[in-house]
């Protein structure tokens, strides 16, 4: 008998003929109650709590806001970012730089698909707007653009907006560890600096 058939047989034997699958009660909160403005404030509060920097570009000057935070040196951007957001001087990622090349880049700019205010979470889905996963991972500076219309309040609302089969990355603040005496230290392997630009 193959391992597959044997494991499945064991599972069936273990459960016996009368295993009952209970219906999961979904009485927990699935939607929030905040206004759009309150959601933005809550997200900013959570992001700052995680020590991400937040730049407010809601008045329209996305390119100018980006220019003010981008470092010297080579900066790549996700290929699907709207042209009018770009400050000039950044290059689109064409998917060819490998990990070693990405490691020499000063920073990246990506978009995002959803943000969850309650937990300060920003979601990237590997689409042209967000870029492939290694783009927002290897360089030490990640500038992430969040559109206010993409901000939801709760985790259920956020997950419901996502396409599960895309490669998803949920980011809640910069890379951190608490492995040494449970002291939180920001900046281990992921980008040590996360700057969120609200548009």
């Amino acid at each position: 008998m193959s391992a597959r058939d044997e494991v499945l047989r064991r599972v069936r034997d273990a459960l016996g003929p009368d295993a009952v699958a209970p219906e999961a009660p979904r009485t927990y909160a699935t939607t929030g109650s905040l206004t759009a403005a309150e959601r933005v404030d809550l997200l900013v509060d959570r992001l700052v709590d995680y020590r991400a920097a937040v730049v407010d570009a809601r008045d329209g000057g996305v390119a100018a806001a980006l220019r003010s935070v981008l470092p010297q040196g080579q900066v790549l951007h996700a290929p699907g970012l709207p042209q009018d957001w770009l400050p000039g001087g950044t290059e689109p990622d064409d998917g060819t730089p490998g990990p070693r090349e990405l490691d020499t880049i000063a920073g990246v700019v990506t978009g995002s698909v959803t943000a969850i205010a309650l937990t300060g979470t920003i979601v990237l889905d590997g689409s042209p707007l967000c870029g492939r996963r290694s783009l927002s991972l290897v360089p030490d500076l990640h500038v992430c653009i969040v559109r206010t219309q993409d901000i939801v309040e709760t985790v259920p609302e956020g997950l419901a907006r996502l396409e599960p089969t895309r490669p998803l990355t949920l980011i809640s603040g910069p890379s951190a560890t608490s492995d040494i005496e449970l002291n939180r230290v920001e900046g281990v392997h992921g980008p040590r600096t996360l700057i969120v630009v609200l548009v």
């Binding site: 959570r46 995680y50 969850i116 309650l118 937990t119 300060g120 979470t121 590997g126 996963r133 985790v155 599960p164 089969t165 895309r166 490669p167 998803l168 990355t169 949920l170 980011i171 809640s172 603040g173 910069p174 890379s175 951190a176 992921g190």
Partner: peptide
């Protein structure tokens, strides 16, 4: 934490 810094999901290969 309200949410851990990183959660990754993947489905087969992309």
């Amino acid at each position: 934490e309200r949410m851990n810094p990183y959660t990754s999901t993947w489905t087969g290969i992309t």
